[in-house]
Design a protein around this nucleic acid. Structure first.
Length: 231
DNA sequence: GGCCAGGACACCA
DNA sequence: TGGTGTCATGGC
């Protein structure tokens, strides 16, 4: 083994330890988050699309509108015209685009999974991820959210908070790709759905509170929260 | 009135 | 391939 390889492995090991310790620090600070808010796997998938670049409070309003209109179902979304659907999800931002995304997702379920989200469980995760990424409007974060929170597959979700917090902690580069960050977490943690679920939820919780109030802090407040843990 | 929130796609150089 | 524009509400 070359010295360079040794250094690379040592850095990866250190990052892995810090990723685990950071989880413990977040969990101790905020406690369990009980994600994802959604009545069933299908609703979780719809929420994953609607929450793209949008706060969850706005998504709740959009989902509430869909429930009131009795279209929060595969049949309902298939039936309703795009214009009406866009009007109902208006609070979730970018409603015209998201109405199309919902329609595309329903078409995918109709064509590939006999109109049932639960049928996706039968497909091997990597293959399913590939299929979902091929659906127009579904990017990596949305797809991983669906895999993890809707059908309990161990796929780590990376979002803007993850990127921001972990680059401030010096564990990643601000310009790291989505897959680089995802691989870093998955290589550092056991493939555990509950752990991935809780970790992402805690990152969002932390990002929405402390890191939001101090957007320009170079020393992420997480360092302080975990000061006695991270070395 | 301005900024930002749990992205993704289209287009261009 | 990477950067930039577009989508376009609601709360603080």
């Amino acid at each position: 083994m070359t010295a360079k390889t040794k250094n690379t492995r040592a850095r990866a090991t250190t990052a892995g330890k810090r990723i685990k310790l950071t989880y413990q620090g977040l969990y101790d600070t905020y406690g369990p988050q009980h994600w994802w808010p959604g009545d069933c796997p299908f609703e979780v998938c719809i929420g994953a699309i609607l929450t793209q670049s949008t706060s969850w409070t706005n998504v709740e309003k959009a989902i509430g509108n869909m429930k009131d209109a009795r279209i929060l179902s595969i049949k309902g979304i298939r039936r309703v015209n795009s214009r009406k659907l866009a009007g109902l999800i208006r609070p979730s931002l970018y409603y015209n685009v998201k109405a199309r995304k919902l329609k595309e997702f329903i078409r995918f379920l109709d064509e590939q999974y006999a109109s049932d989200v639960n049928n996706m469980r039968k497909t091997e995760m990597a293959e399913l991820r590939k299929q979902l990424l091929a659906v127009w409007g579904l990017g990596p974060e949305t797809v991983d959210s669906m895999l993890l929170y809707a059908i309990s597959k161990p796929s780590f979700v990376v979002d803007a908070y993850t990127r921001r917090i972990f680059s401030r902690l010096g564990l990643s580069h601000p310009h790291s790709t989505y897959d680089e960050l995802k691989s870093m977490f998955e290589a550092s943690l056991p493939k555990d759905v509950r752990l991935y679920n809780e970790y992402h939820a805690l990152i969002v919780r932390h990002g929405k509170t402390v890191c939001k109030t101090k957007p320009k802090c170079l020393e992420c407040c997480l360092k302080k929260a975990c000061a006695n843990r991270i070395r």
